[in-house]
Design a protein around this nucleic acid. Structure first.
Lengths: 251, 251
DNA sequence: CGGTCCCTTGAAAACGTTCAAATATAGTGG
DNA sequence: CCACTATATTTGAACGTTTTCAAGGGACCG
């Protein structure tokens, strides 16, 4: 890890509000299986004793870079993280975005070093599960390893949106719809979307230009499919949007 | 597996010619680590005692489909295998091609079921390493698991060619160049290329149309970069081709 | 030989990009 | 609080690459 951009983390004080927040988030979180398991093993000992709740990372913080050793599994509590490959030399390729409840750090397939970069696009807070703990729990609990692998494969499956030759309209529709379903799964409103990233990043991810993304959003708004307010999107007609997405999501 | 398209395999007779052939291939094979390990464990016992050498699969045979249980790690000995997702309903997406020395069957990330389809584009012969053997060896030999994971990650890394927004010329150049390097690594001529697949499959893989692939090949030929003879390509100017590929391969 | 599949080739059209400039927003320091 | 700067977004018009549509060869297999 690059300490220059990696602020020191600390355990959060156990005030009630934070505890409730934590529970709510954990219930709809990628790492729920881990936290449940931890509870079981520790006989209802407090999560906070094992999971490290980080302080906030300011926008632009690198959580890890290519080649960094894999130290921990991280769960985004709030904010948006951009995962990308290729240096800043104009040729970066965005692999995906992680928001509340998403796990990151699973890209290290060889089990030791990261294969992509992760940078915060907004102020971000994390739950940090030291990798040693993940490993220990995995060996103790049989079902857990499968959970971890499922998590990994789900991540990869979502990236299949990028494969295939689809129109700009299809890709943006699918992107918005996936964001919506993601929010829904996390217990948030499926229509109130918070894009944590600039247009340029959406464009890069979808293999388009920022101009095209902007124009499409405007068109969708004119067609009453949604309302745009900077990075806040209000989806008005999910089924129509699904129709635009076409074959990307159904297959 | 679908037995309808999966002919019964047998162990090859140990005639000298085949043995030599086998050794030659194994030396430049994705599974070399496994075969070495096997030799070590078995105290120089013959490979053939453990690795199942399949009979030939005719063109169009499905080696596995989505959802099939993962039974074996397969190494292509000759021929070309197409890996793809999405049903035949006009919307298939090709994920890659496997030729001599390539390992297939590693797509089953959750460790139990295949996540893609594999079909032979030509007559294909395989080495089959039953998954139980792979698992057993992996647990006995520490370095082996890493070898397997490296194999997996290399496979994934090569698919990053598909990410990113590149021109048709860049993508086709990169494709040919990767084929060339692949052949070189396997001990074959880096200029004499045998594309095992139709133009339509190259196009699908590169997110283009068959027409565009055909036109580009013709243009490359006019520019003395290569010579085209049906599916046999003679690469005349690798460095010029690399220049066309541009940023795809260097990053 | 006849049929089928694959590949090629041409012309027109579409989609998305590029270039350029205006507008809006957030952040900063006076 | 305002002016000021940098960054992000929007918008327009022209352009270019790639696709689409259509038709013509060519190889292989029975």
């Amino acid at each position: 890890m690059h300490n220059a951009t990696f602020p020191k983390s600390r355990k959060l004080p156990l005030v009630l509000s934070d505890d409730v927040l934590s529970q709510h988030q954990c219930a709809a979180c990628d790492a729920a299986a881990f936290c449940m398991a931890e509870n079981e093993v520790a006989r209802m000992r407090r999560l906070d004793a094992h999971v490290e709740h980080s302080s906030a990372y300011p926008e632009g913080s690198h959580l890890f870079r290519v080649g960094d050793p894999l130290l921990a599994l991280m769960i985004v509590r709030s904010g948006t993280v951009k995962l990308y490959m290729g240096g800043g030399g104009g040729s970066e390729q965005i692999l995906g975005f992680a928001q509340a409840g998403d796990a990151i750090g699973l890209d290290a397939i060889d089990g030791s070093r990261h294969q992509s970069n992760a940078v915060t696009l907004e102020t971000v807070s994390l739950c940090i599960l030291p990798f040693a703990m993940v490993t220990r729990l995995s060996s103790e609990l049989p079902g857990l390893q499968r959970g971890l692998l499922n998590l990994l494969s789900r991540h990869i499956a979502s990236s299949y949106m990028l494969f295939g030759r689809h129109s700009a309209e299809q890709r943006l529709s699918a992107f918005l719809l996936l964001m919506s379903r993601h929010a829904d799964r996390r217990g948030l409103s499926p229509s109130r979307l918070h894009l944590g990233m600039p247009r340029a990043d959406i464009a890069n991810y979808l293999r388009l230009t920022p101009e095209t993304v902007s124009r499409l959003l405007r068109r969708f708004q004119q067609q009453r499919l949604l309302q745009v307010d900077r990075r806040e999107i209000n989806l008005l007609d999910l089924s129509a949007l699904a129709k635009r997405a076409g074959s990307i999501l159904h297959d």
